[in-house]
Amino acid sequence: MSFIDWGALMQVLVAGLILGAGAPALFALGLRLLAGTAPVAPEGAAAASSDGEATASATVTIARPTPVRLVGAIACLGVVVGAVAFGLVFVVSGGH
């Protein structure tokens, strides 16, 4: 008597981990490549200046990403957008 379809469960878990955790990770990596870790010293700098200033200076001080980083970022974000588009097609085509 098996109440759990272990095969399907494992498939959902593995694919879920790859897509569900991988996509945010790639997205984060893309952003990191794009924005750089920037001159902000982790806690101190942001806390030192007032909120408004921090946001203003943060946008200003970001160095232009090098071409390599830019390509990397576009690749990462592209994969994520592709995954979302795939999900959309999947939903629309009634593959569920």
Partner: peptide, 27 residues
């Protein structure tokens, strides 16, 4: 919980040091 937990951990790890304004806007 497993999927979101791992995803969040990756994201937190990777965005460490990224200016909050940028990461907020993106995310």
């Amino acid at each position: 919980i497993a999927v979101a937990g791992l995803g969040t951990w990756f994201v937190a790890r990777l965005t460490r040091g990224v200016p909050q304004e940028v990461s907020n806007r993106g995310f």
